[in-house]
Each structure stands twice: as structure tokens, then as C-alpha cells.
């Protein structure tokens, strides 16, 4: 379990997506252990989000907290389950080098960024949840927090893709230079 938290830390520090790893066409993380960590972090954010229901004027609604704790990890898990097949198929169609396992690892790493950012903003959301009764404000705050976390995850995926592409580009150029040299020699 500690190893999975270390994996998350390596992803956040950008060590898991360094060029030597990408050169091998993969990201070295254990998806199983990482998934557990991500579920825990998503549950923490769900709890922070659900705190709002504890202090509403009509009395505390504990089931809403439970529902939020369940729904936030479900949101990410189900989104991944729904989009992964088509992503893999289109990736393969356009000639990507990534295998299905690599696509899953890459998406898990992207998700790790999103969920880690969400969980880190959790204390702020929990504080606002218990200190305000204004529902539209809380909706807006959660939208902003999700948007911030989503943009971070998106930036990570784009950056990783760009790194991978630059490596692929260099490899292609090297091959061309090599073949032109051999032609000159010939």
C-alpha cells in the first residue's frame, strides 16, 4: 500500500513520465494499488463535498455524505470505464504505439493528478461547506475546484503526449539521418 502512495508521489513529481520511461512506451506504475489510493482520495473529497448536507437548515442529512463519498469515486471510475474502450480503439486506429495496458496506466496517472488536486482542495471545500448555507455558492465552488483539478490532469496528459511525440519525432529523424548516411556511403 505504501508503494502505491509512492507511485502517486512519483506521478505528481513527474518522475513516472520521464523520457526514459516513455521511451519504453509505458509508465511504470502499479495500476491495482494506485486505483485503491485514487478511490480513497476521491472518497475523501466526496466527504468534504458532502459536509454541506450536515449543516443545512432542515437538519443534518448523513445519507447525503455517504452518497457523495460513494459518488465521487464512481464518477471517475465509470467515466474511465465508459471512455477507455473507444479511446484505445481510436488510439490503435491512428497508429499510436501505446498498448491497452499503457493507455490504462497513462489514464490512471492523469486521474491520479485530478484526484490528488481534488483531495488537496478538500479541506477548503469542507470549510466552506460548513461555514455557508448558500447552495448556489457551493455548486459554483465545486465546479471551480473540479475545473481546476480537471485542467491540471489535462495539462499532464498533454505534456506527457508532447514528450512522447518529441521522442517519437527524434527517433524518426535519427532513422532518416542514418538511412541518408548509409545511402551516401553506398
Amino acid at each position: 500500500m505504501i508503494q502505491s502512495w509512492r507511485d502517486l508521489d512519483r506521478i505528481l513529481r513527474g518522475e513516472a513520465t520521464r523520457l526514459p520511461n516513455l521511451r519504453r512506451g509505458t509508465i511504470e506504475v502499479r495500476v491495482g494499488g494506485l486505483a485503491v489510493v485514487l478511490v480513497v482520495l476521491a472518497m475523501i473529497y466526496g466527504a468534504c463535498m458532502g459536509c454541506f448536507a450536515l449543516f443545512k437548515p432542515g437538519g443534518a442529512d448523513y445519507w447525503q455524505v455517504v452518497a457523495s463519498v460513494v459518488k465521487v469515486p464512481a464518477l471517475f471510475g465509470l467515466t474511465l470505464a465508459v471512455t477507455l474502450p473507444s479511446l484505445y480503439v481510436f488510439n490503435a486506429l491512428v497508429g499510436s504505439r501505446l498498448s491497452l495496458t499503457s493507455v490504462v496506466r497513462l489514464l490512471a496517472a492523469g486521474l491520479a493528478i485530478i484526484v490528488a488536486v481534488l483531495a488537496s482542495l478538500g479541506p477548503i471545500v469542507a470549510f466552506f461547506s460548513v461555514s455557508t448555507t448558500n447552495y448556489p455558492f457551493m455548486v459554483l465552488l465545486n465546479v471551480v475546484v473540479f475545473a481546476a483539478a480537471g485542467s491540471m490532469g489535462m495539462m499532464f496528459l498533454l505534456q506527457t503526449r508532447r514528450l512522447g511525440n518529441s521522442w517519437a519525432m527524434r527517433r524518426m529523424l535519427r532513422r532518416r539521418v542514418r538511412s541518408s548516411r548509409s545511402r551516401i556511403r553506398f
Binding site: 508521489d9 505528481l12 513529481r13 490528488a116 488536486v117 488537496s120 478538500g122 479541506p123 477548503i124 470549510f127
Partner: peptide, 18 residues
């Protein structure tokens, strides 16, 4: 300070200045 630190820690990590 305590409420704001977790997100700042993650932001520092993400930008590679941990």
C-alpha cells in the same frame, strides 16, 4: 494556513519544486 497548505503542497509537487 492549515486549510490552504495541502493544495499548495500538491501545486508545488506538480510544478516540480517540491
Amino acid at each position: 494556513l492549515v486549510l490552504s497548505l495541502p493544495s499548495y503542497f500538491v501545486a508545488n509537487t506538480l510544478l516540480g519544486v517540491r
